[in-house]
């Protein structure tokens, strides 16, 4: 990994609350109220460093991805989240940082700071990070074009496996802009891990290919 990293983010995690939240709220919500179909669960990576890359439709996505891991692994998982949204007010910032354990990412790249420094540092500490390269939740249950930031990150950490995951149904259960949760069985398709391919275009092609293959495996009809 690149050594000229200037990580400056300090975690504010409340370990007890975080553990309790996932054990008593998130896991029951995911496995009883919603119901997860985890496909290819043998492909799950239980130890870091690893980059989980998923499509993004709902606030449930992060919680669902984390809940497929045992509680002992969850403490090691950190979702990357946009600082302009998740740190925008105090209660949300507290929840995102103390309970979820996000690594804030500055989506605004006009600064001279290294936007990935904190993520690279987390990977160096053998953490598992979750990244949504669509950038935002977008239109529910529709796959948007992936942003290429993930390629830059993979290039800087070529020895870290990238695990593509396709999520289906969470956008139906809790789409953007809705506060009412409606239960649906949701699917989580785990793909084969892969590494930095040596150049940006081939890496993005590989990532998008594996996502589309996972999406196709479900044979889902569009949600209109």
């Amino acid at each position: 990994m690149n050594d000229s990293v200037k990580a400056n983010y300090s975690y504010k995690i409340n370990k007890v609350l975080r553990y309790t939240f996932f054990a008593l709220i998130v896991k029951p919500l995911m496995y009883i109220i919603i119901g997860l179909n985890i496909r290819n669960s043998h492909l799950r990576l239980n130890s870091g460093p690893a980059i989980i890359v998923a499509n993004h439709n709902s606030h449930l996505d992060t919680l669902a991805l984390m809940s497929i891991f045992p509680l002992t692994v969850i403490k090691n998982i950190h979702p990357v989240a946009a600082s302009d949204y998740f740190l925008s007010n105090k209660p949300l910032a507290w929840f995102s940082q103390s309970i979820i354990g996000i690594i804030p990412l500055n989506r605004n790249l006009t600064t001279f700071n290294d936007p990935f420094a904190d993520i690279v540092e987390a990977l160096r500490q053998n953490k598992i990070i979750i990244l949504f390269p669509e950038g935002s939740r977008g239109i529910p249950e529709k796959l948007d074009k992936f942003k290429t930031g993930i390629a830059h990150l993979a290039k800087r950490c070529p020895e870290v496996p990238v695990l593509p995951v396709f999520l289906h149904g969470f956008g139906k259960a809790l789409p953007k802009g809705e506060a009412l949760l409606v239960p649906f069985f949701c699917d989580i398709f785990l793909g084969e891990k892969f590494f930095w391919t040596g150049n940006k275009n081939s890496f993005m092609d590989k990532l998008e290919d594996s996502m589309l293959n996972l999406a196709r495996a479900g044979n889902f009809t569009a949600w209109e």
Binding site: P140, K172, E178, L180, V182, P183, F184, T221, W223, E224
Partner: peptide, 14 residues
């Protein structure tokens, strides 16, 4: 839940 996850539903039916 299984039935509603299986059938096509409209966005507006949530």
């Amino acid at each position: 839940k299984e039935y509603l996850s299986l059938i096509p539903t409209r966005r507006s039916d949530r």
